[in-house]
């Protein structure tokens, strides 16, 4: 899912921009209990009207505001209390408010995650838990990555390794994670292209990427409210040259500030939750300065209470 955070900044493929806000995701310190399934849907909208051409921030009258709408179907299943399986299926639609380029739409990339919590213990007055995650994403349709910034994705099959630590003291939590993304090469519909040199192949070398994230806030049985900071860095790639078009193997970097709010219904509607979140790109390179928000509804099946120990009031 991580790659789409940065994609979000370009294609504004917001699903994963917003994904970190949902409880029991690939980026938080929450787990589903054994045999419980949390499923839901999220709507996300992201847009930008300035972007970084290399390090130069600019607008583009021939694009106007580029917006992306994403509909996600997501789920998280507790294989055990310590091992969860997560997925996300996004449908993405892009649009430019000015100029002549046609917006694109379609099924984007399926994401699958295994989330493992090997360590969970109390330290002082709080709880410490440590996680290891393995993620994989792959395109669900034959969309093109070669129409940036209106492509719905980058197409690169991505394997993510993530280490994460969560500390909860009373209702106050802090989560930190670091990720490495191995991104497979992609192919274009053309047989030659120029990056900083000519390439006579339809295959594009995709640089790997890294990401770290810190999130902190309030977490109770009923409410979660937190702020996030995420730094995505492409490990290689090249800058867009002056007045050129973006390319999938650009050096796309972004620093993003986000907020997440989640409300868990209790009593009669127990298991139901709604989420809302925002993301704002503070700094970037070869990406759009995205503002995004998301809204979602989730439901936990066969479980009267939230899974995992963290949801205790």
């Amino acid at each position: 899912m991580m790659k789409q955070i940065i994609l979000g900044a370009w294609v504004a493929a917001s699903c994963l921009l917003a994904a970190p806000s949902i409880a029991q995701t690939d980026a938080d310190g929450l787990m589903m209990a054994k045999n419980n399934f949390c499923g839901g849907a999220m709507y996300m909208h992201a847009s930008w009207n300035h972007y970084w051409e290399g390090t130069l921030k600019r607008n583009n009258l021939n694009l106007g505001t580029v917006s992306t709408t994403t509909y996600n179907l997501m789920g998280n299943y507790g294989i055990t209390g310590k091992l969860n399986f997560l997925f996300n299926v996004p449908y993405v639609r892009t649009k430019a408010s000015a100029g002549n380029l046609a917006g694109q739409q379609g099924m984007q990339d399926l994401s699958l995650w295994l989330k493992y919590m090997p360590i969970e213990k109390s330290i002082g007055d709080g709880f410490l838990s440590v996680y290891g995650l393995l993620g994989y994403s792959t395109p669900l349709s034959n969309y093109t990555a070669d129409l940036l910034p209106l492509s719905i994705g980058l197409r690169s099959k991505t394997t993510t390794l993530r280490a994460m630590v969560d500390y909860q003291l009373g209702s106050f939590t802090t989560t930190a994670s670091a990720s490495f993304m191995h991104r497979q090469n992609i192919t274009l519909d053309r047989t030659a292209y120029y990056t900083t040199e000519m390439h006579y192949t339809n295959e594009v070398f995709m640089p790997n990427a890294s990401q770290w994230q810190v999130r902190s806030g309030y977490r109770s049985e009923r409410w979660i409210a937190e702020a996030t900071y995420t730094q995505f860095t492409t490990l290689g790639g090249f800058d867009i040259t002056r007045n050129n078009v973006p390319f999938p193997s650009n050096r796309m970097n972004a620093g993003m500030l986000g907020t997440n709010i989640k409300y868990n219904f209790l009593n009669k509607l127990n298991g139901l939750s709604i989420v809302a979140n925002t993301q704002h790109v503070l700094s970037g390179r070869n990406v759009g300065q995205t503002n995004a928000y998301g809204l979602g509804v989730f439901y936990i099946m066969n479980m009267p209470k939230l899974g995992g120990k963290k949801a205790k009031p």
Partner: peptide, 8 residues
């Protein structure tokens, strides 16, 4: 991830 370039 090495590219096979026809020209090369």
């Amino acid at each position: 991830k090495t590219l096979e370039d026809r020209s090369q």
